[in-house]
Write a protein that binds this DNA or RNA. Structure first.
Lengths: 141, 141
DNA sequence: TTATCTAATAGGAATAATTACTAATTAATA
DNA sequence: TATTAATTAGTAATTATTCCTATTAGATAA
Protein backbone atom coordinates (compact mmCIF):
# COMPACT_ATOMS: atom_id res chain seq x y z
CA UNK A 1 0.00 0.00 0.00
CA UNK A 2 0.91 3.60 -0.34
CA UNK A 3 1.32 6.64 1.86
CA UNK A 4 -1.44 7.82 4.15
CA UNK A 5 -1.95 11.03 2.17
CA UNK A 6 -2.31 9.18 -1.10
CA UNK A 7 -5.01 6.95 0.38
CA UNK A 8 -6.82 9.90 1.91
CA UNK A 9 -6.72 11.82 -1.36
CA UNK A 10 -7.97 8.91 -3.40
CA UNK A 11 -10.82 8.25 -0.97
CA UNK A 12 -11.79 11.92 -1.01
CA UNK A 13 -11.65 12.02 -4.80
CA UNK A 14 -14.02 9.09 -4.96
CA UNK A 15 -16.51 11.02 -2.85
CA UNK A 16 -15.92 9.37 0.52
CA UNK A 17 -15.72 11.45 3.66
CA UNK A 18 -12.47 11.65 5.54
CA UNK A 19 -13.15 10.91 9.19
CA UNK A 20 -10.66 10.64 12.06
CA UNK A 21 -11.66 6.99 12.42
CA UNK A 22 -10.79 6.22 8.82
CA UNK A 23 -7.49 8.05 9.04
CA UNK A 24 -6.56 6.21 12.21
CA UNK A 25 -7.39 2.82 10.74
CA UNK A 26 -5.51 3.40 7.50
CA UNK A 27 -2.56 4.87 9.36
CA UNK A 28 -2.32 1.88 11.66
CA UNK A 29 -2.60 -0.64 8.82
CA UNK A 30 0.07 1.15 6.84
CA UNK A 31 2.49 1.05 9.74
CA UNK A 32 1.99 -2.43 11.13
CA UNK A 33 3.31 -5.71 9.83
CA UNK A 34 1.32 -7.88 12.17
CA UNK A 35 -1.72 -8.71 9.99
CA UNK A 36 -4.21 -7.81 12.74
CA UNK A 37 -7.76 -9.10 13.01
CA UNK A 38 -10.73 -6.74 13.41
CA UNK A 39 -10.65 -6.91 17.18
CA UNK A 40 -6.95 -6.08 17.41
CA UNK A 41 -7.49 -3.10 15.08
CA UNK A 42 -10.38 -2.01 17.27
CA UNK A 43 -8.31 -2.21 20.45
CA UNK A 44 -5.49 -0.26 18.87
CA UNK A 45 -7.67 2.51 17.47
CA UNK A 46 -9.49 2.79 20.80
CA UNK A 47 -6.33 4.02 22.47
CA UNK A 48 -6.67 7.21 20.42
CA UNK A 49 -10.43 7.21 19.94
CA UNK A 50 -12.09 5.49 22.89
CA UNK A 51 -15.54 5.87 21.36
CA UNK A 52 -14.78 4.09 18.11
CA UNK A 53 -17.06 1.13 17.57
CA UNK A 54 -16.25 -2.29 16.21
CA UNK A 55 -18.89 -1.87 13.54
CA UNK A 56 -17.01 1.14 12.21
CA UNK A 57 -13.87 -0.98 12.03
CA UNK A 58 -15.71 -3.56 9.95
CA UNK A 59 -17.34 -0.96 7.71
CA UNK A 60 -14.03 0.78 7.08
CA UNK A 61 -12.31 -2.52 6.32
CA UNK A 62 -15.05 -3.31 3.81
CA UNK A 63 -14.47 0.02 2.13
CA UNK A 64 -10.70 -0.46 2.04
CA UNK A 65 -11.08 -3.98 0.69
CA UNK A 66 -13.38 -2.79 -2.10
CA UNK A 67 -10.88 -0.06 -3.02
CA UNK A 68 -8.12 -2.72 -2.97
CA UNK A 69 -6.27 -0.78 -0.31
CA UNK A 70 -6.18 -3.70 2.07
CA UNK A 71 -6.13 -7.43 1.67
CA UNK A 72 -8.09 -9.93 3.75
CA UNK A 73 -6.69 -13.32 4.69
CA UNK A 74 -8.88 -16.04 6.21
CA UNK A 75 -6.99 -18.02 8.75
CA UNK A 76 -8.70 -20.52 10.99
CA UNK A 77 -12.11 -18.97 10.67
CA UNK A 78 -11.08 -15.40 11.37
CA UNK A 79 -10.18 -12.60 9.00
CA UNK A 80 -6.81 -10.87 9.22
CA UNK A 81 -5.95 -7.66 7.41
CA UNK A 82 -2.91 -6.47 5.56
CA UNK A 83 -2.02 -3.33 3.66
CA UNK A 84 0.45 -5.29 1.56
CA UNK A 85 -1.83 -5.74 -1.44
CA UNK A 86 0.35 -7.08 -4.20
CA UNK A 87 0.28 -10.82 -4.67
CA UNK A 88 2.44 -12.64 -2.12
CA UNK A 89 2.56 -15.68 0.10
CA UNK A 90 1.36 -15.46 3.70
CA UNK A 91 3.22 -17.73 6.08
CA UNK A 92 1.00 -18.45 9.05
CA UNK A 93 2.44 -19.77 12.30
CA UNK A 94 -0.03 -22.29 13.71
CA UNK A 95 1.35 -21.83 17.20
CA UNK A 96 1.73 -18.10 17.83
CA UNK A 97 -0.53 -16.85 15.04
CA UNK A 98 2.12 -14.64 13.48
CA UNK A 99 1.92 -14.04 9.74
CA UNK A 100 4.96 -13.25 7.61
CA UNK A 101 4.98 -12.18 3.98
CA UNK A 102 7.12 -13.72 1.29
CA UNK A 103 7.27 -12.59 -2.30
CA UNK A 104 7.70 -14.96 -5.20
CA UNK A 105 7.71 -14.12 -8.89
CA UNK A 106 6.31 -17.52 -9.77
CA UNK A 107 2.90 -16.56 -8.39
CA UNK A 108 2.08 -14.51 -11.47
CA UNK A 109 3.02 -17.40 -13.68
CA UNK A 110 0.96 -19.85 -11.67
CA UNK A 111 -2.01 -17.55 -11.87
CA UNK A 112 -1.72 -17.20 -15.64
CA UNK A 113 -1.31 -20.90 -16.21
CA UNK A 114 -4.30 -21.72 -14.03
CA UNK A 115 -6.44 -19.12 -15.80
CA UNK A 116 -5.55 -20.60 -19.17
CA UNK A 117 -6.12 -24.19 -18.15
CA UNK A 118 -9.38 -23.58 -16.31
CA UNK A 119 -10.77 -20.78 -18.49
CA UNK A 120 -11.55 -18.81 -15.31
CA UNK A 121 -11.36 -15.01 -15.25
CA UNK A 122 -9.23 -14.51 -12.17
CA UNK A 123 -9.57 -11.46 -9.95
CA UNK A 124 -7.40 -12.27 -6.98
CA UNK A 125 -5.20 -14.91 -5.47
CA UNK A 126 -4.63 -16.07 -1.93
CA UNK A 127 -1.56 -18.10 -1.09
CA UNK A 128 -1.07 -19.38 2.43
CA UNK A 129 1.48 -21.70 3.92
CA UNK A 130 0.80 -23.03 7.42
CA UNK A 131 3.39 -24.29 9.85
CA UNK A 132 5.64 -23.13 12.65
CA UNK A 133 7.72 -19.97 12.58
CA UNK A 134 11.42 -19.95 13.32
CA UNK A 135 10.85 -19.25 17.00
CA UNK A 136 8.00 -21.68 17.56
CA UNK A 137 9.50 -24.58 15.63
CA UNK A 138 12.44 -24.84 18.03
CA UNK A 139 10.21 -25.04 21.10
CA UNK A 140 7.76 -27.43 19.49
CA UNK A 141 6.47 -30.24 21.71
CA UNK B 1 -7.70 -39.53 -1.57
CA UNK B 2 -7.92 -43.23 -1.88
CA UNK B 3 -10.54 -45.93 -2.08
CA UNK B 4 -13.29 -46.25 0.52
CA UNK B 5 -11.92 -49.57 1.77
CA UNK B 6 -8.46 -48.18 2.26
CA UNK B 7 -9.80 -45.34 4.35
CA UNK B 8 -12.00 -47.65 6.39
CA UNK B 9 -9.10 -50.01 7.02
CA UNK B 10 -6.75 -47.27 8.05
CA UNK B 11 -9.28 -45.75 10.43
CA UNK B 12 -10.00 -49.15 11.96
CA UNK B 13 -6.27 -49.85 12.34
CA UNK B 14 -5.88 -46.61 14.24
CA UNK B 15 -8.54 -47.73 16.68
CA UNK B 16 -11.48 -45.72 15.39
CA UNK B 17 -14.90 -47.29 15.11
CA UNK B 18 -16.44 -47.77 11.72
CA UNK B 19 -19.95 -46.37 11.80
CA UNK B 20 -22.46 -46.13 8.96
CA UNK B 21 -22.29 -42.34 9.31
CA UNK B 22 -18.54 -42.30 8.80
CA UNK B 23 -18.74 -44.63 5.84
CA UNK B 24 -21.43 -42.53 4.21
CA UNK B 25 -19.49 -39.30 4.67
CA UNK B 26 -16.21 -40.70 3.37
CA UNK B 27 -17.98 -42.38 0.47
CA UNK B 28 -19.69 -39.16 -0.55
CA UNK B 29 -16.52 -37.08 -0.30
CA UNK B 30 -14.60 -39.62 -2.38
CA UNK B 31 -17.17 -39.52 -5.14
CA UNK B 32 -17.98 -35.83 -5.40
CA UNK B 33 -15.99 -33.10 -7.03
CA UNK B 34 -18.13 -30.27 -5.75
CA UNK B 35 -16.18 -29.26 -2.61
CA UNK B 36 -19.30 -29.27 -0.39
CA UNK B 37 -19.70 -27.33 2.85
CA UNK B 38 -20.82 -29.01 6.08
CA UNK B 39 -24.49 -28.31 5.45
CA UNK B 40 -24.45 -29.76 1.96
CA UNK B 41 -22.73 -32.90 3.27
CA UNK B 42 -25.36 -33.11 5.99
CA UNK B 43 -28.22 -32.82 3.50
CA UNK B 44 -26.72 -35.44 1.26
CA UNK B 45 -26.05 -37.96 4.02
CA UNK B 46 -29.55 -37.41 5.41
CA UNK B 47 -31.08 -38.92 2.28
CA UNK B 48 -29.64 -42.27 3.38
CA UNK B 49 -29.58 -41.66 7.14
CA UNK B 50 -32.36 -39.25 8.08
CA UNK B 51 -31.31 -39.21 11.73
CA UNK B 52 -27.72 -38.11 11.15
CA UNK B 53 -26.92 -34.88 12.96
CA UNK B 54 -24.92 -31.92 11.79
CA UNK B 55 -22.65 -32.27 14.81
CA UNK B 56 -21.66 -35.73 13.63
CA UNK B 57 -20.78 -34.27 10.26
CA UNK B 58 -18.50 -31.73 11.91
CA UNK B 59 -16.91 -34.30 14.22
CA UNK B 60 -16.26 -36.68 11.36
CA UNK B 61 -14.77 -33.92 9.24
CA UNK B 62 -12.45 -33.03 12.12
CA UNK B 63 -11.32 -36.63 12.31
CA UNK B 64 -10.75 -36.85 8.57
CA UNK B 65 -8.86 -33.56 8.56
CA UNK B 66 -6.58 -34.71 11.35
CA UNK B 67 -5.89 -37.96 9.50
CA UNK B 68 -5.17 -35.90 6.36
CA UNK B 69 -7.91 -37.70 4.51
CA UNK B 70 -9.74 -34.51 3.62
CA UNK B 71 -8.71 -30.97 3.03
CA UNK B 72 -10.53 -27.88 4.28
CA UNK B 73 -10.73 -24.69 2.24
CA UNK B 74 -11.98 -21.42 3.73
CA UNK B 75 -13.94 -19.45 1.22
CA UNK B 76 -15.90 -16.37 2.20
CA UNK B 77 -16.23 -17.31 5.82
CA UNK B 78 -17.40 -20.87 5.31
CA UNK B 79 -15.45 -24.10 5.19
CA UNK B 80 -15.61 -26.35 2.15
CA UNK B 81 -14.27 -29.89 2.06
CA UNK B 82 -12.34 -31.87 -0.48
CA UNK B 83 -10.93 -35.40 -0.59
CA UNK B 84 -8.27 -34.27 -3.06
CA UNK B 85 -5.50 -33.89 -0.49
CA UNK B 86 -2.33 -33.39 -2.46
CA UNK B 87 -1.22 -29.83 -2.94
CA UNK B 88 -3.16 -28.06 -5.68
CA UNK B 89 -4.82 -24.78 -6.57
CA UNK B 90 -8.50 -24.22 -5.85
CA UNK B 91 -10.23 -22.00 -8.35
CA UNK B 92 -13.26 -20.43 -6.69
CA UNK B 93 -16.05 -18.92 -8.76
CA UNK B 94 -17.26 -15.82 -6.93
CA UNK B 95 -20.60 -15.96 -8.69
CA UNK B 96 -21.83 -19.56 -8.54
CA UNK B 97 -19.55 -20.79 -5.76
CA UNK B 98 -18.14 -23.65 -7.81
CA UNK B 99 -14.61 -24.79 -7.00
CA UNK B 100 -12.32 -26.43 -9.56
CA UNK B 101 -8.96 -28.03 -8.91
CA UNK B 102 -5.84 -27.31 -10.91
CA UNK B 103 -2.49 -29.01 -10.38
CA UNK B 104 0.80 -27.23 -10.79
CA UNK B 105 4.27 -28.64 -10.18
CA UNK B 106 5.58 -25.21 -9.22
CA UNK B 107 3.71 -25.32 -5.91
CA UNK B 108 6.27 -27.66 -4.37
CA UNK B 109 9.04 -25.36 -5.46
CA UNK B 110 7.29 -22.31 -4.08
CA UNK B 111 6.76 -24.05 -0.78
CA UNK B 112 10.41 -25.03 -0.52
CA UNK B 113 11.67 -21.60 -1.42
CA UNK B 114 9.38 -19.92 1.09
CA UNK B 115 10.41 -22.36 3.82
CA UNK B 116 14.07 -21.63 3.17
CA UNK B 117 13.64 -17.86 3.06
CA UNK B 118 11.39 -17.59 6.09
CA UNK B 119 12.87 -20.44 8.17
CA UNK B 120 9.33 -21.69 8.82
CA UNK B 121 8.63 -25.40 9.21
CA UNK B 122 5.75 -25.78 6.78
CA UNK B 123 2.99 -28.33 7.29
CA UNK B 124 0.46 -27.45 4.64
CA UNK B 125 -0.32 -25.05 1.86
CA UNK B 126 -3.52 -23.48 0.67
CA UNK B 127 -3.65 -21.89 -2.76
CA UNK B 128 -6.82 -20.19 -3.92
CA UNK B 129 -7.62 -18.16 -6.98
CA UNK B 130 -10.88 -16.20 -6.99
CA UNK B 131 -12.76 -15.06 -10.06
CA UNK B 132 -15.47 -16.16 -12.46
CA UNK B 133 -15.72 -19.61 -13.97
CA UNK B 134 -16.05 -20.20 -17.69
CA UNK B 135 -19.85 -20.22 -17.53
CA UNK B 136 -20.27 -17.24 -15.21
CA UNK B 137 -17.70 -14.99 -16.87
CA UNK B 138 -19.70 -14.90 -20.10
CA UNK B 139 -22.92 -13.83 -18.37
CA UNK B 140 -21.18 -11.32 -16.14
CA UNK B 141 -22.96 -8.01 -15.60
C1' DT C 1 -18.60 31.56 8.85
C1' DT C 2 -22.90 29.20 9.12
C1' DA C 3 -26.77 26.33 7.56
C1' DT C 4 -27.89 22.34 5.10
C1' DC C 5 -27.68 17.75 3.67
C1' DT C 6 -26.60 13.21 3.85
C1' DA C 7 -22.75 9.91 4.70
C1' DA C 8 -20.79 7.87 8.57
C1' DT C 9 -20.76 6.52 13.33
C1' DA C 10 -21.86 4.25 17.94
C1' DG C 11 -24.08 0.93 20.15
C1' DG C 12 -26.63 -2.82 20.41
C1' DA C 13 -29.45 -6.54 18.37
C1' DA C 14 -29.52 -10.23 14.95
C1' DT C 15 -27.35 -13.79 12.24
C1' DA C 16 -24.88 -17.86 10.99
C1' DA C 17 -21.22 -21.14 11.15
C1' DT C 18 -19.05 -23.86 14.35
C1' DT C 19 -18.15 -25.93 18.93
C1' DA C 20 -19.45 -27.74 23.39
C1' DC C 21 -22.29 -30.59 26.18
C1' DT C 22 -24.69 -34.76 27.62
C1' DA C 23 -27.84 -38.62 27.81
C1' DA C 24 -28.64 -42.45 24.85
C1' DT C 25 -26.88 -45.63 21.46
C1' DT C 26 -23.92 -48.91 19.35
C1' DA C 27 -19.38 -50.96 17.41
C1' DA C 28 -15.83 -53.77 18.99
C1' DT C 29 -14.22 -57.35 22.17
C1' DA C 30 -13.79 -61.31 24.79
C1' DT D 1 -24.19 -62.45 24.35
C1' DA D 2 -22.72 -59.16 27.72
C1' DT D 3 -19.67 -55.51 28.53
C1' DT D 4 -17.55 -51.15 27.80
C1' DA D 5 -16.14 -47.07 26.04
C1' DA D 6 -16.43 -44.50 21.70
C1' DT D 7 -19.80 -42.31 19.01
C1' DT D 8 -24.03 -40.15 18.07
C1' DA D 9 -28.27 -37.01 18.13
C1' DG D 10 -30.04 -33.12 19.65
C1' DT D 11 -29.63 -28.93 21.60
C1' DA D 12 -27.40 -25.05 23.89
C1' DA D 13 -23.50 -21.99 23.80
C1' DT D 14 -20.06 -19.42 21.44
C1' DT D 15 -18.02 -16.18 18.32
C1' DA D 16 -17.04 -13.48 14.32
C1' DT D 17 -19.51 -10.71 11.46
C1' DT D 18 -23.53 -8.18 9.68
C1' DC D 19 -27.63 -5.52 10.32
C1' DC D 20 -30.32 -1.73 12.16
C1' DT D 21 -31.25 3.00 13.55
C1' DA D 22 -31.05 7.29 16.04
C1' DT D 23 -27.46 10.55 16.39
C1' DT D 24 -23.32 12.94 14.83
C1' DA D 25 -20.39 15.37 11.93
C1' DG D 26 -17.82 15.99 7.14
C1' DA D 27 -18.48 18.45 2.90
C1' DT D 28 -20.58 21.99 0.25
C1' DA D 29 -22.49 26.29 -0.96
C1' DA D 30 -24.81 30.50 0.53
Amino acid sequence: MQQLEQVVTSLRNEGFRITPQRIAIVDYLLKTKEHPNAERIHKTIKRKYPMVSLSTIYKTLDLLKERKLVNEIDVGGEARFDAHTDEHINLVCMKCGKIDDVDDDMLKEIRNKAAKKSKYFILKGSFELFGYCEICKSKRN
